[in-house]
Amino acid sequence: MALGRVELEFSARVIAASAVVVVFGLVWVIPIYGLLSGSLKSLAEVQGTPVLSPPSELNFETIARVARELTGPLKNTFITVLPVAALATWLGSLAAYSIYRRMDRVSDSIMVAIAIATYIPYHAILVPLINLVKSLGLYDTLPGIALALLTYYTPMAALLMVIFMSAIPRFYIEAAMVDGAGDLRVFRRVVLPLLGPGLTSTMIFLFIMTWNNFYIPLLLSRGYETHITLKIFSYVGQSGTLYNEMFAASLLGSLPPLIVFLSLGRYFIRGLQAYGGGVKA
């Protein structure tokens, strides 16, 4: 009897949960659907049809035209963002190792200082950074944007790496130290091999965050060519009511992070979890 009731209740719960997931899911699907269908509309069609009506035929003309215009900014974004994500992850993991190995008041304070710097909105402290970039003659250049991104995302990488590193059992390190290995050797031989997923997660998280960053390139550029988000934004003013172009630019500009998200989503989510307070799922 008791078990029967439990089972009944169980299935009712799953049905209710499925209903919630479907209703919410629709709201999550509609924007992506609109983005896809809008990008596939021709110039003639976009003027008369609502955003959510499917395209009458698959027209790749808009996507092809926008793709040509986006080549430069896409390339620029790749050569800015990839080195930034890699370098920040590398420097962050070195700092994280030193913090993890020290674990005293000094490293605790550094850790807290890094966390505060990470979570205070960079939007509020960008002006002096712009002045610094300008004084180095790097305004409106890719290295300038890279420098500003590194300034903000390297401490964040250190924070994420501390979180990932804290999962490594200390006795691995102690055992290696007993065997006479030095600090750097322990890092290379013991810690790094265990850190693979943590490094990947941090790098992928930073790649997506820096790719999607808008405020930093906006304040450090004159035109719209230096970063993909600026280029996408430029279509808002340019094409007025022609949403097919805006959508095509949005779609193409989102492909790299979307592909990474779809294929390596679990690493991104682990990055998010670390960012959101180091929760372990």
Binding site: F24, G25, W28, I30, P31, I32, G34, L35, G38, T49, P50, V51, L52, I208, W211, N212, N213, F214, I228, T229, I232, F233, Y235, V236, Y243, M246, F247, S250, G253, S254, P257, L258, V260, F261, G265, R266, F268, I269, L272
Partner: peptide, 26 residues
């Protein structure tokens, strides 16, 4: 993962899509 996908998009992209979904007539 599905419900997290908006976080993998740029806020600019999200803004553009919703700007159009909120369009009065279209």
């Amino acid at each position: 993962t599905f419900f997290l996908y908006p976080l993998s998009l740029s806020l600019v992209v999200v803004g553009i899509i919703w700007r159009w979904l909120f369009d009065q007539y279209r």
